[in-house]
Write a protein that binds this DNA or RNA. Structure first.
Lengths: 99, 99
DNA sequence: TCGAGAATTAGCCATATATCTAAATGGACG
DNA sequence: CGTCCATTTAGATATATGGCTAATTCTCGA
């Protein structure tokens, strides 16, 4: 996991809301876009940031592109946060995050 | 908790490293600064961002200012991440077994 | 093959951010 | 007091980011 890309991706409120919506299930780009007051190209930019961070996955279905959460990153994120905040008693979590 | 401020604070690698160092225990501004290749004013800027996000607390001890983690935010952060990634009932039924 | 619909890519602009140097603040101590 | 030391504040600058419009790509269906 690229921590920096993940964290930067999560730093934007629009992207966090996209993730929240995708938590309900797979949605098309257009379906997501209509929930926001920004243009499709801007949304597309956010999708690419989320994809680069591997927070979402996409697949084409006809003319549409469907996006879905990549939940495996969640665990990595938890691991990172424990690394930052977790009060550890010697070896409580062996697996250290990168960076 | 101001999610946006917390997330933006965490988006910077220097600030994440500061938190990691503070996880070892309280440290002075200078003590933290000497670990990085950036100037004291730049460090000070990062401290203020972390403070604004309530991720750290500070207290004066003579000429020095000591910083410490504010661990209570950790729980809030976890809660937020579950909100983003945690499978809710609706989501669970839509994409079961997906990874 | 052609046109329409969905989405992305390209290019531009304004704002936000991270960094620096220089100056100001606040405490310690002779 | 006066000066030193630790840190912050002010102000400047370069880069990053997020938004837009216009143009392009890709797929579907007549």
């Amino acid at each position: 996991m690229r921590i920096n890309e993940v964290m930067k991706a999560l730093a934007d409120p629009t992207r966090r809301e996209i993730l929240r919506l995708l938590n309900e299930g797979e949605k098309s780009a257009g379906e997501l876009a209509e929930r926001f007051a920004i243009t499709a190209p801007s949304m597309s930019h956010h999708f690419s940031v989320l994809k680069a961070a591997d927070l979402i996955r996409s697949r084409r279905a006809g003319q549409q592109i469907l996006y879905a959460l990549n939940t495996t990153v969640f665990e990595d994120l938890m691991s990172l946060l424990f690394d930052l905040f977790g009060r550890t008693e010697a070896g409580m979590h062996e697996k250290e995050g990168e960076q």
